[in-house]
């Protein structure tokens, strides 16, 4: 039996043997935790609207997002956020919390390699692709908008 065929057979065999992620359980956890994070966000939004009635909707949104980012950064620093992430999966990744965590965690991890080569270089090692996709996506959307 040639090695390519052997490898193919082996991969098929392994795939059948691998335990699958519990789909519904993961979905439920993500929904509940993600929903809770959004509720906390809404709470801050309403509080800011109550405390500072002069703020516009956009300003209220920014203030709420900044608060959530700050809370995530602190929870990451305290070593709590990775538990939430391991439990909730996409539930904690999709909101702004996942983005904040992905910037703070490599910054902490690579502090030992110095400020420039450690923190500054590694800070965007996980969030970088998201930023690139965001920028490229918005350029494409802009081009389409220009043509229409």
């Amino acid at each position: 039996m040639d090695s390519e065929k052997r490898n193919q057979n082996y991969n098929t065999y392994v795939e059948a043997k691998v335990p699958k992620t519990k789909f519904w359980q993961a979905l439920l956890k993500a929904f509940v935790v993600g929903g809770l994070i959004c509720c906390v966000g809404q709470l801050f939004y309403d509080l800011y609207a109550y405390w500072f009635p002069t703020l516009s909707e956009a300003q209220l949104g920014s203030a709420m997002l900044s608060t959530i980012i700050a809370i995530t950064a602190i929870l990451t620093g305290l070593g709590i956020f990775d538990w939430i992430g391991a439990f909730a999966g996409a539930g904690s990744v999709i909101p702004i919390t996942g983005f904040a965590n992905s910037i703070v965690s490599p910054s902490m991890e690579f502090k030992k390699e110095g400020i420039i080569f450690g923190i500054c270089v590694k800070m965007f090692s996980i969030a970088g692709p998201v930023i690139v996709c965001g920028v490229v996506g918005s350029v494409l959307a802009g081009l389409i908008y220009l043509i229409i």
Partner: peptide, 12 residues
Amino acid sequence: FPLELGNQRPPT
């Protein structure tokens, strides 16, 4: 990944 990154590990 960094230790504090909130990601999930696959079952394998």
